[in-house]
Protein backbone atom coordinates (compact mmCIF):
# COMPACT_ATOMS: atom_id res chain seq x y z
CA UNK A 1 0.00 0.00 0.00
CA UNK A 2 1.36 3.44 -0.87
CA UNK A 3 0.41 6.36 1.28
CA UNK A 4 1.71 9.88 0.98
CA UNK A 5 4.26 10.52 3.72
CA UNK A 6 3.18 13.23 6.08
CA UNK A 7 5.98 15.57 5.06
CA UNK A 8 5.81 15.15 1.29
CA UNK A 9 6.35 18.45 -0.62
CA UNK A 10 2.97 18.45 -2.37
CA UNK A 11 1.19 17.96 0.87
CA UNK A 12 3.09 20.78 2.51
CA UNK A 13 2.38 23.16 -0.35
CA UNK A 14 -1.29 22.29 -0.20
CA UNK A 15 -1.26 23.00 3.44
CA UNK A 16 0.28 26.45 3.12
CA UNK A 17 -2.01 27.43 0.27
CA UNK A 18 -5.06 26.22 2.09
CA UNK A 19 -4.15 27.81 5.35
CA UNK A 20 -6.05 31.11 4.96
CA UNK A 21 -9.16 29.29 3.74
CA UNK A 22 -8.94 26.92 6.62
CA UNK A 23 -8.68 29.79 9.04
CA UNK A 24 -11.67 31.58 7.52
CA UNK A 25 -13.63 28.35 7.38
CA UNK A 26 -12.85 27.51 10.95
CA UNK A 27 -13.77 30.99 12.17
CA UNK A 28 -17.06 31.03 10.27
CA UNK A 29 -18.01 27.54 11.37
CA UNK A 30 -16.97 28.35 14.92
CA UNK A 31 -19.12 31.48 14.80
CA UNK A 32 -22.17 29.58 13.59
CA UNK A 33 -21.61 26.88 16.17
CA UNK A 34 -21.45 29.52 18.92
CA UNK A 35 -24.65 31.16 17.67
CA UNK A 36 -26.30 27.74 17.64
CA UNK A 37 -25.17 27.03 21.18
CA UNK A 38 -26.31 30.42 22.49
CA UNK A 39 -29.68 29.99 20.78
CA UNK A 40 -30.35 26.54 22.16
CA UNK A 41 -29.20 27.60 25.63
CA UNK A 42 -31.46 30.67 25.48
CA UNK A 43 -34.39 28.60 24.26
CA UNK A 44 -33.98 26.19 27.17
CA UNK A 45 -33.74 29.00 29.72
CA UNK A 46 -36.64 31.00 28.27
CA UNK A 47 -38.75 27.86 28.32
CA UNK A 48 -37.84 27.42 31.98
CA UNK A 49 -38.93 31.04 32.56
CA UNK A 50 -42.48 30.23 31.48
CA UNK A 51 -42.86 26.82 33.14
CA UNK A 52 -45.01 26.95 36.25
CA UNK A 53 -42.18 25.76 38.53
CA UNK A 54 -40.65 29.12 39.35
CA UNK A 55 -38.59 29.63 42.46
CA UNK A 56 -40.13 32.86 43.72
CA UNK A 57 -37.63 33.28 46.53
CA UNK A 58 -34.76 33.09 44.03
CA UNK A 59 -36.47 35.55 41.68
CA UNK A 60 -36.90 38.07 44.52
CA UNK A 61 -33.31 37.66 45.61
CA UNK A 62 -32.12 38.29 42.05
CA UNK A 63 -34.46 41.29 41.66
CA UNK A 64 -32.84 42.81 44.71
CA UNK A 65 -29.34 42.08 43.41
CA UNK A 66 -29.91 43.14 39.80
CA UNK A 67 -32.41 45.94 40.39
CA UNK A 68 -31.91 47.60 43.72
CA UNK A 69 -28.12 47.38 43.95
CA UNK A 70 -27.74 48.73 40.41
CA UNK A 71 -29.54 51.97 41.26
CA UNK A 72 -26.38 53.95 42.13
CA UNK A 73 -24.61 52.97 38.92
CA UNK A 74 -27.61 53.74 36.75
CA UNK A 75 -28.39 56.99 38.58
CA UNK A 76 -24.86 58.32 38.29
CA UNK A 77 -24.64 57.41 34.62
CA UNK A 78 -27.96 59.09 33.88
CA UNK A 79 -27.29 62.35 35.72
CA UNK A 80 -23.97 62.94 33.96
CA UNK A 81 -25.28 61.97 30.54
CA UNK A 82 -28.31 64.24 30.93
CA UNK A 83 -26.06 67.11 31.96
CA UNK A 84 -23.60 66.61 29.11
CA UNK A 85 -26.42 66.21 26.62
CA UNK A 86 -27.96 69.53 27.71
CA UNK A 87 -24.64 71.32 27.23
CA UNK A 88 -24.07 69.79 23.80
CA UNK A 89 -27.54 70.56 22.54
CA UNK A 90 -27.36 74.13 23.82
CA UNK A 91 -24.04 74.60 22.07
CA UNK A 92 -25.18 72.92 18.85
CA UNK A 93 -28.62 74.51 18.90
CA UNK A 94 -27.13 78.01 19.22
CA UNK A 95 -25.74 77.62 15.69
CA UNK A 96 -29.27 78.02 14.34
CA UNK A 97 -30.94 79.85 17.23
CA UNK A 98 -32.59 76.72 18.59
CA UNK A 99 -31.25 76.86 22.16
CA UNK A 100 -34.79 76.77 23.53
CA UNK A 101 -35.19 73.14 22.38
CA UNK A 102 -32.74 71.84 24.96
CA UNK A 103 -35.47 70.31 27.21
CA UNK A 104 -37.24 68.65 24.29
CA UNK A 105 -34.17 67.05 22.82
CA UNK A 106 -32.74 66.00 26.18
CA UNK A 107 -35.94 64.20 27.13
CA UNK A 108 -36.21 62.60 23.69
CA UNK A 109 -32.59 61.46 23.65
CA UNK A 110 -32.71 60.10 27.16
CA UNK A 111 -35.99 58.20 26.97
CA UNK A 112 -35.65 56.72 23.49
CA UNK A 113 -31.95 56.00 23.30
CA UNK A 114 -29.44 56.98 25.93
CA UNK A 115 -31.37 55.83 28.99
CA UNK A 116 -31.84 52.23 27.86
CA UNK A 117 -28.55 51.87 25.95
CA UNK A 118 -26.28 53.34 28.59
CA UNK A 119 -28.08 51.63 31.46
CA UNK A 120 -27.84 48.42 29.43
CA UNK A 121 -24.12 48.84 28.80
CA UNK A 122 -23.38 49.74 32.41
CA UNK A 123 -25.30 46.71 33.60
CA UNK A 124 -23.60 44.52 31.03
CA UNK A 125 -20.52 45.35 33.06
CA UNK A 126 -22.07 45.03 36.49
CA UNK A 127 -24.66 42.30 36.13
CA UNK A 128 -23.44 40.15 33.22
CA UNK A 129 -19.94 39.87 34.62
CA UNK A 130 -21.29 39.23 38.10
CA UNK A 131 -23.59 36.44 36.93
CA UNK A 132 -20.91 34.87 34.73
CA UNK A 133 -18.42 34.88 37.60
CA UNK A 134 -20.92 33.48 40.09
CA UNK A 135 -22.24 30.75 37.79
CA UNK A 136 -18.71 30.04 36.54
CA UNK A 137 -17.47 29.56 40.09
CA UNK A 138 -20.40 27.21 40.69
CA UNK A 139 -19.45 25.30 37.55
CA UNK A 140 -15.77 24.87 38.41
CA UNK A 141 -16.43 23.98 42.06
CA UNK A 142 -18.93 21.31 40.87
CA UNK A 143 -21.89 23.05 42.47
CA UNK A 144 -23.81 22.75 39.21
CA UNK A 145 -23.07 19.00 39.10
CA UNK A 146 -24.20 18.81 42.73
CA UNK A 147 -27.41 20.64 41.81
CA UNK A 148 -28.07 18.06 39.09
CA UNK A 149 -27.50 15.11 41.43
CA UNK A 150 -29.97 16.70 43.86
CA UNK A 151 -32.62 16.68 41.11
CA UNK A 152 -32.33 20.44 40.62
CA UNK A 153 -32.29 21.85 37.11
CA UNK A 154 -29.82 24.69 36.61
CA UNK A 155 -32.01 26.39 34.00
CA UNK A 156 -34.92 26.46 36.40
CA UNK A 157 -33.12 27.03 39.62
CA UNK A 158 -30.23 29.29 38.57
CA UNK A 159 -30.87 30.80 35.18
CA UNK A 160 -34.61 31.44 34.90
CA UNK A 161 -34.73 33.51 38.14
CA UNK A 162 -31.89 35.70 36.89
CA UNK A 163 -33.41 36.21 33.46
CA UNK A 164 -36.86 36.95 34.89
CA UNK A 165 -35.30 39.45 37.30
CA UNK A 166 -33.32 41.07 34.47
CA UNK A 167 -36.36 41.44 32.22
CA UNK A 168 -38.42 42.90 35.08
CA UNK A 169 -35.80 45.13 36.64
CA UNK A 170 -34.18 46.77 33.62
CA UNK A 171 -37.33 48.69 32.60
CA UNK A 172 -37.71 49.95 36.17
CA UNK A 173 -34.07 51.02 36.25
CA UNK A 174 -34.46 52.75 32.90
CA UNK A 175 -37.53 54.57 34.16
CA UNK A 176 -35.41 55.85 37.04
CA UNK A 177 -32.62 56.69 34.58
CA UNK A 178 -35.09 58.65 32.44
CA UNK A 179 -36.14 60.78 35.40
CA UNK A 180 -32.62 61.30 36.72
CA UNK A 181 -31.29 61.99 33.20
CA UNK A 182 -33.85 64.71 32.66
CA UNK A 183 -32.97 66.13 36.06
CA UNK A 184 -29.28 66.13 35.06
CA UNK A 185 -30.15 68.21 32.02
CA UNK A 186 -32.35 70.45 34.17
CA UNK A 187 -29.52 71.07 36.65
CA UNK A 188 -27.18 72.29 33.93
CA UNK A 189 -29.87 74.22 32.10
CA UNK A 190 -31.01 76.05 35.21
CA UNK A 191 -27.61 76.31 36.88
CA UNK A 192 -25.42 77.29 33.93
CA UNK A 193 -27.60 78.15 30.94
CA UNK A 194 -30.14 80.53 32.53
CA UNK A 195 -33.24 78.45 31.83
CA UNK A 196 -36.35 78.88 33.93
CA UNK A 197 -36.65 75.72 36.03
CA UNK A 198 -40.43 75.37 35.98
CA UNK A 199 -40.66 76.14 32.29
CA UNK A 200 -37.95 73.61 31.49
CA UNK A 201 -39.83 70.83 33.23
CA UNK A 202 -43.14 71.84 31.68
CA UNK A 203 -41.54 71.79 28.22
CA UNK A 204 -40.01 68.37 28.80
CA UNK A 205 -43.23 66.90 30.10
CA UNK A 206 -45.49 68.26 27.40
CA UNK A 207 -43.08 67.22 24.64
CA UNK A 208 -42.40 63.62 25.60
CA UNK A 209 -44.95 61.05 24.39
CA UNK A 210 -45.88 57.76 25.98
CA UNK A 211 -44.45 56.14 22.83
CA UNK A 212 -41.02 57.60 23.62
CA UNK A 213 -41.09 56.14 27.08
CA UNK A 214 -42.59 52.81 26.02
CA UNK A 215 -40.03 52.25 23.28
CA UNK A 216 -37.24 52.84 25.79
CA UNK A 217 -38.81 50.44 28.27
CA UNK A 218 -39.27 47.71 25.66
CA UNK A 219 -35.61 48.08 24.75
CA UNK A 220 -34.73 47.85 28.42
CA UNK A 221 -36.63 44.59 28.86
CA UNK A 222 -34.83 43.07 25.86
CA UNK A 223 -31.46 44.28 27.15
CA UNK A 224 -32.26 42.82 30.56
CA UNK A 225 -32.81 39.46 28.90
CA UNK A 226 -29.58 39.74 26.90
CA UNK A 227 -27.48 40.76 29.90
CA UNK A 228 -28.66 37.95 32.14
CA UNK A 229 -28.68 35.28 29.43
CA UNK A 230 -25.11 36.07 28.38
CA UNK A 231 -23.95 35.96 31.97
CA UNK A 232 -25.61 32.60 32.54
CA UNK A 233 -24.42 31.17 29.23
CA UNK A 234 -20.77 32.08 29.69
CA UNK A 235 -20.78 31.01 33.33
CA UNK A 236 -22.37 27.68 32.45
CA UNK A 237 -19.73 27.00 29.81
CA UNK A 238 -16.73 28.06 31.86
CA UNK A 239 -14.10 25.54 32.82
CA UNK A 240 -10.59 25.37 34.13
CA UNK A 241 -10.39 27.06 37.51
CA UNK A 242 -10.10 30.74 38.37
CA UNK A 243 -8.75 31.68 34.93
CA UNK A 244 -11.78 30.13 33.27
CA UNK A 245 -14.11 32.10 35.52
CA UNK A 246 -12.33 35.35 34.64
CA UNK A 247 -12.57 34.55 30.95
CA UNK A 248 -16.29 33.79 31.32
CA UNK A 249 -16.86 37.21 32.90
CA UNK A 250 -14.99 39.01 30.11
CA UNK A 251 -16.77 37.10 27.35
CA UNK A 252 -20.14 37.77 28.98
CA UNK A 253 -19.53 41.54 29.12
CA UNK A 254 -18.27 41.76 25.54
CA UNK A 255 -21.02 39.51 24.20
CA UNK A 256 -23.76 41.34 26.07
CA UNK A 257 -22.48 44.79 24.98
CA UNK A 258 -22.30 43.82 21.31
CA UNK A 259 -25.73 42.19 21.38
CA UNK A 260 -27.21 45.23 23.15
CA UNK A 261 -25.90 47.62 20.50
CA UNK A 262 -26.97 45.39 17.62
CA UNK A 263 -30.44 44.73 19.01
CA UNK A 264 -30.78 48.44 19.81
CA UNK A 265 -30.48 49.21 16.12
CA UNK A 266 -32.92 46.48 15.15
CA UNK A 267 -35.48 47.56 17.75
CA UNK A 268 -35.13 51.23 16.82
CA UNK A 269 -35.77 50.48 13.17
CA UNK A 270 -38.81 48.42 14.09
CA UNK A 271 -40.16 51.23 16.31
CA UNK A 272 -39.60 53.77 13.55
CA UNK A 273 -41.44 51.58 11.07
CA UNK A 274 -44.45 51.00 13.31
CA UNK A 275 -44.43 54.61 14.42
CA UNK A 276 -43.84 54.01 18.13
Amino acid sequence: MTTLPATSPTRDRDFVLLRPFRLIGRTVIGGFREIGRISSFSARVLLACVTPVIYLREVLRQCLKIGYYSLPVVGLTAVFIGAALALNIYQGGSRFNAEQFVPNIVVLGITRELGPVLAGLMLAGRVSAGIAAEVGAMRVTEQIDALLTLSGRPERFLYAPRVIAGVLMLPLLVLVADIIGVMGGWLVAVGALDFNGALYLRNSWSFVTSGDIQSGLIKAAVFGGIITLMGCYQGDRSKGGAGGVGRAATLAVVGAAVLILASNYVLTSIFVRIGL
Binding site: E142, Q143, D145, A146, L147, T149, L150, S151
Partner: peptide, 16 residues
Protein backbone atom coordinates in the same frame (compact mmCIF):
# COMPACT_ATOMS: atom_id res chain seq x y z
CA UNK B 1 -30.46 10.48 40.81
CA UNK B 2 -33.58 10.39 42.98
CA UNK B 3 -32.37 7.18 44.56
CA UNK B 4 -28.68 8.04 44.90
CA UNK B 5 -26.60 10.46 46.92
CA UNK B 6 -23.25 11.97 46.03
CA UNK B 7 -20.49 13.51 48.10
CA UNK B 8 -18.28 15.54 45.77
CA UNK B 9 -14.50 15.70 45.97
CA UNK B 10 -14.56 19.39 46.86
CA UNK B 11 -17.79 19.28 48.89
CA UNK B 12 -19.62 21.37 46.27
CA UNK B 13 -21.84 23.00 48.89
CA UNK B 14 -23.98 25.85 47.52
CA UNK B 15 -22.21 28.87 48.93
CA UNK B 16 -25.19 31.18 48.44
Amino acid sequence: RRRTGMLFQGGALFDS
